[in-house]
């Protein structure tokens, strides 16, 4: 098992390197940070000095090399826009995004899996049909529209929930959490529903399809022929066999939730990394954008590793194959 983890980490290195190169290269041509930082009035000498300071006069690969060296040490330079260390900015924003994303993912799983099981077991009940119709809405409505509709309904008309921001937060070391205050929890509701709705319906449809597939198998029929209780057959035997694909998709979707929180964060003015990224794009703030992309890539790679490890926990067949393969 440790050998497997090491080999996966080694596999992840080229991926991370490629992402770093692409993000760095892309943003090297995205805008002119110098012009934005200097403002309206400047002399050519000031401009040249700034370019030298930022290292922008160096050849592309020298710039990239410097960037990589620093990045490995957790040093992403200063934000052009805010003149503060990038790592500090991201550390400040990360808790907001992670709390939002985890809540959304948790919500999606907690509601999506039972709905999937139900619609798989009772294919023809009216509640199943309702869930399926409802899931169509979740899959097809764009996130920003759902967010705006929710704000309209619960903030503007009913006035129950705040329409923007994180509410009050409590500082736990460097981590600021909204979980511990009433206003923080209230502020979390609408954004997490907005962010998690698509994943929820996706998980529901996935679990349903897998359940239908598994319920047709011989071993489920045999489990029934052995006279096991419905509960044991449906949950013990059928559900567990649907888990592998569900874990895959949920894992990937967790990455997607964090990465695509951008839209939700913009709609709700959520002070997370996504909002930081959008603001940085507007200012051509290359260090922040590059660091953000690399961070997201690292998250995806980590989640994939966890997903692979979960496979081993669920499916004994992989344990043998995996041991041989590595």
């Amino acid at each position: 098992m440790p050998a497997f983890i090491i080999s996966r980490v080694l596999q992840a290195l080229p991926v991370m390197l490629a992402v770093a190169l692409i993000s760095f290269a892309m943003f090297a041509y995205v805008g002119d940070p110098v012009a934005i930082m200097l403002g309206q009035d400047y002399t050519q000498a000031q401009r040249d000095a700034l370019i030298r300071d930022l290292g922008l006069d160096q050849p592309f690969f020298v710039q990239f090399g410097t960037f990589l060296l620093n990045a490995v040490q957790g040093e992403f330079g200063l934000s052009y826009r805010l003149s503060r260390p990038v790592i500090e900015l991201i550390a400040e924003r990360a808790p907001a995004t992670l709390e939002l994303a985890l809540t959304a993912a948790f919500l999606a799983l907690l509601v999506g899996v039972p709905m999937g099981i139900y619609t798989g077991l009772y294919r023809n009940s009216w509640l199943s049909r309702f869930f399926l119709t409802f899931s169509l809405i979740g899959v097809s409505l764009p996130t920003f529209l759902i967010g705006i509709l929710l704000i309209l309904c619960f903030s503007v008309w009913l006035g129950w929930l705040p329409s923007f921001g994180r509410g009050d937060t409590v500082q736990l070391g460097w981590w600021s959490t909204g979980f511990l205050t009433a206003s923080g929890l209230k502020a979390l509701i609408l954004p997490s529903i907005t962010l998690g709705l698509f994943q929820m319906t996706l998980i529901m449809r996935l679990v349903r399809a897998e359940m239908l597939e598994v319920l047709r198998t011989d071993y489920i029929k045999f489990a029934r022929a052995r006279g096991l209780t419905n509960r044991a057959v449906n949950f013990g035997h059928a559900l567990k066999n649907t888990l592998v694909p569900v874990i895959t998709i949920t894992g990937l979707q967790l990455g997607a939730i964090i990465a695509f929180a951008i839209v939700t964060e913009t709609v709700f003015q959520w002070p997370g990394m996504g909002l930081l990224f959008i603001q940085s794009v507007g200012a051509a703030d290359i260090p922040v954008m590059a660091a953000y992309l690399i961070l997201i890539a690292a998250l995806f790679v980590t989640i994939n590793l966890i997903v692979d490890l979960l496979y081993f926990a669920v499916d004994p067949r992989l344990r043998v194959g995996g041991a041989k393969g590595h």
């Binding site: 011989d218 071993y219 004994p316």
Partner: peptide, 14 residues
Amino acid sequence: GAIFQDPLTTLNPL
């Protein structure tokens, strides 16, 4: 008691 045709698919793999 029941015995099915294909033992490769009758047992729960997990």
